[in-house]
């Protein structure tokens, strides 16, 4: 009896897509993976909105309003939601702005920087507004699992996913556990 394929969605919020690149580093396991799963919203498919899924993989932290919408869409549709990488887990590099006041930060970048005379902070309604702090995703929605690393290595991602797909609670052994 063949099991129905699991549906997976992936996205990057305030991240660098490094975790997605690492995902591709599972190399030949990709062939095994496509036997077991199919992709919903993901940079791999270019599907724009997430439908009902079994697993959602989130890279990056939450830095703006759009991140919040996307994250909620994933949470609403994915039975299992996974934070992938340092930024999703603790805010990561983008969160290093958290000790700065957002207004001062924006003005520094758009108004006061050398060579930017008369500049102003962009206010196009198309652009998502920034939150005053960058948050890990578990501070905005409920998260089921976390895959640490910056990025997590291909083998780490593969071990985690293969455990999950097989119905085992995923565990990372020492060589697969990294925060850097």
């Amino acid at each position: 009896m063949t099991r129905p394929k699991l549906r997976i969605a992936t996205t990057s919020l305030a991240g660098c897509f490094g975790c997605h690149m690492s995902f591709l580093d599972i190399d030949e396991h990709l062939f095994e993976l496509v036997e077991l799963v199919e992709f919903d919203r993901s940079p791999l498919t270019d599907i724009k909105h997430c439908g009902p899924c079994d697993i959602g993989l989130i890279e990056g932290g939450v830095c703006n309003a759009e991140n919040v919408h996307v994250l909620r869409e994933f949470r609403n549709n994915c039975k299992t939601l996974i934070a992938v990488g340092a930024c999703a887990i603790n805010g990561g590099l983008p969160a290093q702005r958290n000790h700065l006041e957002l207004g001062a930060c924006l003005r520094e970048v758009y108004e006061f920087r050398d060579g930017l005379s008369g500049g102003q902070v962009p206010n196009d309604p198309e652009l998502p507004l920034l939150l005053d702090k960058v948050h890990p995703i578990h501070e905005v929605v409920r998260v089921d699992y976390f895959i640490p690393g910056c990025p997590p290595s291909g083998p780490t991602i593969w071990k985690f996913l293969s455990d999950l797909i097989a119905g085992r609670t995923p565990r990372l052994t020492h060589s697969l556990m990294h925060f850097d």
Binding site: Y145, F146, H174, F179
Partner: peptide, 26 residues
């Protein structure tokens, strides 16, 4: 504790204990 930017990463006892005790998130 943003490990990727910390020079102590890999030599840090806090981080190492987190690995040891399988702490995947804060």
């Amino acid at each position: 504790h943003f490990c990727p930017s910390c020079e102590k990463s890999g030599n840090c006892q806090l981080q190492a204990l987190a690995y040891e005790l399988e702490m995947t998130s804060a």
